[in-house]
Design a protein around this nucleic acid. Structure first.
Length: 455
RNA sequence: GGUCGGAUGGCCGAGAGGCGAGGCUCAGGACUGCAAAUCCUGCCACACGGGUUCAAAUCCCGUUCCGACCUCCA
């Protein structure tokens, strides 16, 4: 069933219409976090992308089923001493699964703060080992994979005819390049083959028994196994960050398709571009990794990040800055204040078909926001403004109806405010300013308006 | 080296042959005891060199610069 939503498909290199392969729901898989650290705002941009897709589909009258994995094992570089989970475990001197559960919890907290709606399921890699092993066995039977002399299982890249379709890479060009040193261990039959199952070697933690000996799964196989298990024989849409295009998604596609006799499992691949922060790619080495908590500690509403990200299209690289976040924060506060005012006008129905067109056209959230700004300034009635903003908040999810001021005040604050009002009435402005500072110290910003002070 | 994107005012960013998007900052003004907020006004840009055209930020050719990916990454 067609949905009317067009998105940029990486493999087709053009816009394609999202279709649901069954009548009820669009099936979406989004590559989730590797829970060895907190997600930074760049990671969150990708998670916001899948939320925007889900919300837009709902907005257009369709339902969506989202599954997002939690990688808590097996995400290693080729040098498998460097498993991200175990490296962090050694660093923190704690059990790797304890760490994983903790960062997984943080991940859910961050999503909730950004109003990212919950996926239907968040399967963990560590709890899907049997699924992966079954898939690997199947791939061996089909001769797409083989057991190496080292006890690891490898996927045979050459056995998959359309390898490279997503990334544009060709197997011949993937020979050891100028950038990376290659240390062939001799177990792979072809340089571009990759591990589905890694023999434990010296590892003693996070390993499982298998038909090929104790070991642990490769990174790519978890997404193949989980997407097919939880979403079925067709995945309508696969979402992830642009850097996953290769090798992760290329390899995932090869594994999945090979297991179903080269039928195409995933109909569309959608990738979110990277986020820079203050002009540079976020990385630990550059020291410019920004977490959602960093925003909160600066007194910004986490939803300011949501707005700032939506001001750019998901597939353009964007440079996020503190000043952009502060601007977004101000905009949200102004909108909430205005909406509280507009809410007093009579309720009416409004036509929001233009906004549907913008969203359906490859999630043009920048244009949606632009139009809302124009409406805000326009001659339209308060009723129209209210109805339109509230309708669009179903997708924007900026909590635009949230009250801007707190109702409950401590007795101390109440006394200070009363005293200040009295001082102002007596034109004792020195005392008034002193009291304003005291109020500020307990977290209350006082504003003087023609109708008296407010906070 | 290969592949793909860019270059727009102080900053961020839409637009894709003819009407100078918008936001932020800044300056001036209104309002205000002062702040803050709000409102008004101002700031006339499209990397460079050619070309096509009545008309180019937009199309073509060339140049320079920047970024991404090329088996760590959202």
């Amino acid at each position: 069933m067609k949905t009317g939503l067009f998105l940029a498909d990486t493999k087709a290199r053009t816009l394609l219409e999202v279709e649901s392969s069954n009548e009820s729901s669009v099936r979406i898989y989004c590559c989730g976090p590797t829970v060895y650290r907190d997600a930074h705002v760049g990671n969150l941009r990708t998670f916001l992308l899948s939320d925007l897709i889900v919300r837009t589909l709902n907005f257009l009258g369709h339902s969506a089923t989202l599954v997002q994995n939690i990688t808590d094992v097996g995400h290693m570089s080729d040098d498998f001493e460097e498993d991200k989970m175990l490296a962090q475990s050694q660093l923190e001197r704690r059990d790797p699964f304890t760490i994983a559960r903790e960062y997984e919890e943080h991940f859910h907290t961050d999503l909730a703060r950004l109003n990212i709606s919950k996926a239907k399921r968040y399967p963990r890699a560590s709890e899907s080992i049997e699924l992966m092993q079954a898939l690997i066995e199947h791939l061996i039977e089909l001769k797409s994979a083989y057991v190496g002399e080292d006890g690891s299982v490898y996927f045979s890249a050459q056995s998959f005819p359309t390898y490279g379709a997503i990334s544009g890479n060709r197997l011949d060009d993937l020979k050891p390049g100028h950038r990376y040193e290659y240390t062939e261990d001799g177990a792979k039959r072809f340089h571009a083959d990759w591990a589905l199952w890694k023999a434990a070697g010296k590892r003693t933690e996070m390993i499982w028994p298998s038909p090929w000996g104790a070991g642990f799964p490769g990174w790519h196989i978890e997404c193949s196994a989980m997407s097919m298990h939880f979403l079925g024989e067709t995945v309508d849409l696969h979402v992830g960050g642009i850097d996953l295009r290769f090798p992760h998604h290329e390899n995932e596609r090869a594994q999945s398709n090979a297991s179903i006799h080269n039928r195409e499992l995933v109909s569309m691949w959608v990738h979110g571009e990277h986020l820079l922060f203050e002009g540079r790619k976020m990385s630990k080495s550059a020291g410019n990794v920004v977490l959602l908590n960093d925003l909160i500690n600066k007194g910004l509403d986490p939803l300011a990040l949501r707005l700032a990200l939506m001001e750019n299209r998901y597939r353009s690289q964007m440079d996020l800055t503190w000043s952009a976040l502060e601007a977004a924060n101000k905009t949200i506060l102004r909108w909430r204040r205005n909406i509280a005012q507009w809410a007093l006008a009579p309720r009416i129905e409004v036509d929001i078909s233009d906004f549907k067109v913008f969203l359906a056209n490859d999630l043009d959230t920048p244009k949606v926001i632009l139009q809302l700004r124009a409406l805000e300034k326009s001659e339209a009635t308060d009723s129209q403004k209210y109805a339109t903003f509230i309708a669009m908040d179903r997708v924007l999810a900026l909590d635009l109806q949230r009250r801007t001021q707190e109702e409950e005040l401590s007795t101390e604050a109440r006394e200070l405010l009363d005293a200040r009002e009295l001082a102002r009435a007596n034109k004792d402005f020195v005392m008034s300013d002193v009291l304003r500072e005291k109020l500020q110290a307990i977290g209350i910003d006082v504003l003087d308006t023609p109708d008296g002070q407010s906070w």
